[in-house]
Design a protein around this nucleic acid. Sequence first.
DNA 1: TATGAATGAGCTTTCATTCAT
DNA 2: TATGAATGAAAGCTCATTCAT
Lengths: 209, 209, 209, 209
Amino acid sequence: MSLPAGQPKFRRRKADRPDEIVAAAFEVFAEKGFAAARLDDIAARAGVSKGAIYLYFATKEDIFQAVVEQGVAPNLHNLAALAAANPQTFPDLIRAFAKVMAHVASTTPIGGIIKMVIGEARNFPELARVWHDRLIVPALGALTGAIAAAQARGEIRPGDPRHYAAGLISPLLVGVIWRETFTPVGAEPFDLPALMEQHVETQLRGMVP
Amino acid sequence: MSLPAGQPKFRRRKADRPDEIVAAAFEVFAEKGFAAARLDDIAARAGVSKGAIYLYFATKEDIFQAVVEQGVAPNLHNLAALAAANPQTFPDLIRAFAKVMAHVASTTPIGGIIKMVIGEARNFPELARVWHDRLIVPALGALTGAIAAAQARGEIRPGDPRHYAAGLISPLLVGVIWRETFTPVGAEPFDLPALMEQHVETQLRGMVP
Amino acid sequence: MSLPAGQPKFRRRKADRPDEIVAAAFEVFAEKGFAAARLDDIAARAGVSKGAIYLYFATKEDIFQAVVEQGVAPNLHNLAALAAANPQTFPDLIRAFAKVMAHVASTTPIGGIIKMVIGEARNFPELARVWHDRLIVPALGALTGAIAAAQARGEIRPGDPRHYAAGLISPLLVGVIWRETFTPVGAEPFDLPALMEQHVETQLRGMVP
Amino acid sequence: MSLPAGQPKFRRRKADRPDEIVAAAFEVFAEKGFAAARLDDIAARAGVSKGAIYLYFATKEDIFQAVVEQGVAPNLHNLAALAAANPQTFPDLIRAFAKVMAHVASTTPIGGIIKMVIGEARNFPELARVWHDRLIVPALGALTGAIAAAQARGEIRPGDPRHYAAGLISPLLVGVIWRETFTPVGAEPFDLPALMEQHVETQLRGMVP
DNA sequence: TATGAATGAGCTTTCATTCAT
DNA sequence: TATGAATGAAAGCTCATTCAT
């Protein structure tokens, strides 16, 4: 028996549905923000009825939470992978770090999530807290620690290592936000890997004694 | 009976009303975002009735637009002032630029506006366009031009001058966003002037041949 | 290993399904009322899927109707049995009638049905009509007739025989409603057989010339 | 300036609105029950928009509560008035009590409220508790006490005074329920004052030694 | 100019009913 | 016969906007 040509009215896809809904919700939330996102839009983009969403999520907030949490996990993984790799020298560590981050920023929808975190932090403080505690502090902390260690070895000039760390990664964040915010209205985009490569070399030159 | 300090006996003149409404609206929009902001809240914070708002603004969007435009003007002014002052050397120019920007970032509510621009860019592309065209491109362009000129004089190493410019000011933007997003949930704040001073010196060292 | 008492190993035959559904529906309808009853609850309590209900009943209203009708039949039977028995004297007739009714009221779920009839009479007039025409009028009519006959024989004082009948059986109805309504919130219950015995003797003393 | 002939779109009646809404809600709730009552119906019957209801009540449940509470108060008043009047003899006390109750039952919408209390007791136990504690127990208790006192004086035969009390007032309750439930589908109504007068005389004859 | 009660369109959520399996 | 995922038509509730005062 072959599949019917047309689309059946009902599809039984319990296993896949939640992910499809979360994927659709991510797009809508990233585009509109939480409050302006309409369940109708999410349902339509997920290809399900509005009611079907409530088979998997109790409230709109629950969907939002699932979207955000889904955005945390892969980045956690990236972070762990980065920590496992242990390049010889400090400059190589920084270069590797920047390269991976630039790649992630360029190829994943992390920009949309960052936009959501920034835009909804006040309405959903828990969301900001999760991102801060589980992703940002570990990442920034690891970078800061590496810088401080290099300073202790005399490889890096004195100065607040946390400020050095912020100076290193900020262009990446700004580049991502730029892409989400200004590129859609005609702004010239940034080539993030190229930008980061130049930036890291400049920083390294500036940081060594 | 003396007048209470907070509540002037003489009603403020109607001429002030629009500004008061815009000020209140700015707070609410910055906190909640456009869609989640309620006219009731804006009215209450402005100390007027909900109906009164409609004597000055036709729609909620109009209020939002006024808020955004009010946020553009003073920064335009800052920009012009910066351009008027003409320090002798390239490093001094950069130092002056960074200092003014860090001061503005630390002492004005620009963070709230930036959050709004980022969060609502998709819903109000015109808003993103205005900010991009009238503030960001001029500022970034001026900085990029100064860098390119310095490169032409051999004072700065080769490299994409726009990337250099982005590398210079990004920490400021990130610092402001950090303050709006993570500080309220307990994150350690950044001392923006100190961060920028260290960052600029590092960058300058890295940029010279 | 012996079979658990509550869970027969051999699935009940499909022939029993409708009755099980009606039984479950009765509980839910009596507890929540028609509108607030959820098909999910009925299905869960009947131990079947929601879809299975629609193999036996076309709509929620049909289930309700089945519940009500199932509640009418046994009482009709009681009534007929009562009419068949023919005690010698009028007082004995009344005593027998009250005794049977008190027993029924105490041992059957008639209270829940009465609650449903009262609560849903306006939404389902047909339901009220059925109960009125097939149960109440025959019962009340028989009682009224017996009283009128006794009056004709001079055994009972003058007076509206229908009012006498209402005066005789009302406490039973109130007792049942009381049990459904106030006992669950802590009210002192009534011992219906005792109440009726005392009430009938009092009424008989008051009704004789 | 004369009033416009047509009905103005907006009426400003803040003071009257809540009562109008409660009155409309009472009708709808009494007719449909809580769950089946629709805010649209209540609004339409009150002559306001759905939104206007929410200026005065936060939720549908709050409206329901207001309806019930409004039904308790006047009856409390009746009860107090009854207690204040102190007839000479026990029979006169009972006659007065029955007369007032029959009048109330015949002329007020108490039937609708009783129906609601019975129908929604399980969904809103607090509602049943309020009625039980504030109205029924005091009323039934006062009657029971008067009977017990009369028994102590030898004016009434032995027997459970609470059962006597129930036997006395039950026909009233049944009469009210009858009117709400069966009269609308064609049942012959009861003349409550006449029924109660005959019932009370019968009871009194039966209760004296 | 100013108010705030009132509106009504639109939102999230529920649930009786359907249908592919 | 039986399932339960899916549907979609309401339902309760919100809030930008209007208008009588």
